[in-house]
Design a protein around this nucleic acid. Structure first.
Lengths: 187, 187
DNA sequence: GTCTATAGAAGGATAGAC
DNA sequence: GTCTATCCTTCTATAGAC
């Protein structure tokens, strides 16, 4: 069981440091020190620092949707679940002291030619958008609205992304709260 | 005149490399090499790499609004100028191969405790939002609309930010084009 | 104010013992 | 599979000559 524990310690520490400090500002030396393991132990599980980064992103993807499911478990109507995504992000930003989206952060840290990172970021954002599109369909909005379902869903999604970025920048939930109010009025 | 030329070479090279490669992935050595100057020359103008970063951000702020003014010089109505901001961002993203916002990039690269960087990012985003708010006021929108002027302006601004982030991630102008269509329908 | 040369620290990654 | 010890590169920054 010890190898599993070592791997868990690596992943826990890498997740925390990569997200809080950033990928490039986190050295291998700090990871092994805070995880209380040796350097060759890390390279036994991951062939490079970049390999560890990809594992971190894959884990972040899974945990994000798992935590969303837990957060919105009590919400029954499509509308409540749509607003729930905003509240989910608000709760996360408060907890992480407005550190923003892990995938956006990494995408700003690596070369734009790093295809593996961008594919994972695209997959993550596409999944969030698909989640929003699906909820909007279930809303059964009247046909006479200014925006079609597709346009409304796109607006909601971009409010989620723009609101998150601005929450990080001004260190406040206000942009996400404003976004939520706009969604309530436009639905 | 030679000192000025040296300073210009530093700023040009730093701007290009910081934006294209990222701040942390750009070393002092690469900057002086591509600027064709020596290391002490750089440290004569800037006391540290972080000092150069702040000068880069201040220059980016000025140039962004100067270029916006040029880009929208022919646009007369408030509505055209509002849509013009989207087209301005679209043109910039095409030109930079979808590298996103320079301030958002840097904010993801430095510690969240780097107050000087975050203050400049806040100032930049606040100025864009103020620009949008001002244009929306000039629109003279009917009072019976779903969204107040304040809410509509916030929606437009968050569409600009969300659209830009997504344009960078999926390497396409589509999110910004979609955002523009939504603005046209909601105005 | 610009240069050559170098200091001193930290980066990622590996050899070889156990 | 984990460890100690070490390799080589790159990093930011500076000393001292001109």
């Amino acid at each position: 069981m010890k190898p599993v524990v070592v791997l868990d310690k690596i992943m826990e520490t890498a997740e925390r440091l990569f997200y809080e400090q950033g990928y490039n500002l986190t050295g291998i030396n700090q990871i092994i020190e805070e995880a209380n393991i040796s350097k060759p132990s890390l390279y036994n599980h991951f062939k490079s620092k970049n390999d560890l980064l990809l594992a971190y992103l894959d884990q972040s993807y899974s945990k994000w949707f798992e935590d969303l499911a837990t957060f919105t478990a009590d919400m029954t109507t499509p509308f409540d679940r749509l607003i729930g995504v905003f509240d989910y992000r608000i709760s996360r930003q408060i907890r992480t002291n407005y550190n923003g989206c892990a995938f956006v952060k990494i995408s700003s840290e690596v070369s734009h030619k790093d295809i593996e990172v961008f594919e994972r970021t695209q997959k993550f954002k596409n999944a969030i958008k698909a989640y929003v599109v699906d909820l909007v369909k279930q809303l059964n909005r009247p046909k006479h609205k200014l925006l079609t379902d597709e346009e409304f869903a796109e607006n909601v999604f971009l409010l989620l992304e723009g609101g998150l970025i601005m929450a990080k920048i001004i260190k406040s939930t206000q942009p996400l709260e404003d976004a939520k109010d706009i969604v309530r009025k436009l639905v």
